[in-house]
Amino acid sequence: MSRTTTWNARELLRGAQQEANARLLRVMSEEEGMSTVEYAIGTIAAAAFGAVLYTVVTGESIPDALTGIIEKALNTSV
């Protein structure tokens, strides 16, 4: 092989390696789909919290406690 052929082969390999590194960096740094997953998890968490809150508020203990607080406040002498 001549020096020119060897030099061209090295340049081609170097260019290919740089391009491969650039592609790898782009793939590793892309975050497509991440926001969709985050929104889905947030929505599920909010729905679960809403279900728990609804269960607590519609249970018997909360209205009884609120009624007791209101009766106590209305029966307090000033």
Score class of each variant (00 low, 15 high):
residue 34 M to D: 06
residue 61 S to K: 14
residue 58 T to L: 03
residue 32 E to A: 13
residue 20 A to Q: 05
residue 45 A to D: 10
residue 64 D to A: 14
residue 78 V to T: 12
residue 15 G to R: 14
residue 39 Y to V: 12
residue 59 G to M: 03
residue 70 I to H: 00
residue 13 L to D: 07
residue 51 A to P: 00
residue 22 A to C: 01
residue 68 G to S: 15
residue 75 N to K: 06
residue 50 G to T: 10
residue 16 A to G: 13
residue 51 A to H: 02
residue 23 R to P: 00
residue 65 A to L: 09
residue 44 I to K: 03
residue 19 E to G: 04
residue 67 T to A: 11
residue 7 W to M: 09
residue 25 L to R: 15
residue 20 A to M: 02
residue 71 E to I: 11
residue 20 A to T: 08
residue 2 S to Q: 09
residue 31 E to N: 10
residue 45 A to L: 12
residue 5 T to I: 14
residue 73 A to F: 13
residue 2 S to R: 11
residue 73 A to R: 03
residue 17 Q to R: 12
residue 55 T to C: 03
residue 55 T to Q: 07
residue 1 M to P: 04
residue 42 G to E: 12
residue 76 T to Y: 08
residue 10 R to T: 06
residue 1 M to N: 05
residue 61 S to Y: 08
residue 47 A to W: 04
residue 45 A to S: 09
residue 41 I to V: 14
residue 45 A to H: 02
residue 58 T to Y: 03
residue 52 V to A: 03
residue 18 Q to S: 05
residue 77 S to A: 06
residue 8 N to M: 09
residue 19 E to V: 09
residue 59 G to E: 01
residue 57 V to A: 01
residue 64 D to Y: 06
residue 57 V to M: 03
residue 22 A to S: 08
residue 56 V to P: 01
residue 45 A to I: 06
residue 24 L to D: 12
residue 70 I to T: 08
residue 73 A to I: 14
residue 77 S to P: 01
